[in-house]
Design a protein around this nucleic acid. Sequence first.
DNA 1: CCCTGATTCGC
DNA 2: GCGAATCAGG
Length: 193
Amino acid sequence: MSWTDERVETLKKMWAEGQSASQIAKELGGVTRNAVIGKVHRLGLSNRTPGKGEGEADPAPEAAKAAAPQPKPAAAPKAEAPRPPRPEPEVRPAAPPTPMRKPVVPAGQPLPPQPSANEISPEALAKVGEIEKKARRLSLMELTERTCKWPIGDPATEDFWFCGLPAQPGKPYCEAHVGVAFQPMSARRDRRR
DNA sequence: CCCTGATTCGC
DNA sequence: GCGAATCAGG
């Protein structure tokens, strides 16, 4: 593969969007992230290190950092979450060490949709309750394509993190969470009708 | 361990 | 110019 105009354009665009080199490499195909990074540097797109270049008297430092790429929580290229999960509102393992907490409602951040009483198998729920105690409690930034992206807690408070346990290959969640996230479509309604 | 970008250097 | 190997960091 070579750096055709088109490919370079894609590279520039994605890089500007804040996409990582590996993501760009994946998108382009036929190149590694190293190739992408190398190209980025050759194009002079890398982050201008302070006090460096000659003809780089950049008097407009503000404009560049205005755009913050919007992070995608469960950006699984293939298997996408069938529905926004909302584990157990009940579960709140860590809340005590914050007496001074109440103005925890940021801006009008609506709480995630609550699937209400879903007809999830009791075993699955129990399983989830168990593993959530062992959750790695990862932050958004720590999630990868192979960590469970199941949210736990209230996003509006400090009691929020992601499961982070090893995700099922090709799935965005760990085994336990896959169990409650992917329902066979109405696990079973009234027998016969 | 997973990931990130940065740099080097033989090609 | 290219990019694998390597480095440095989170």
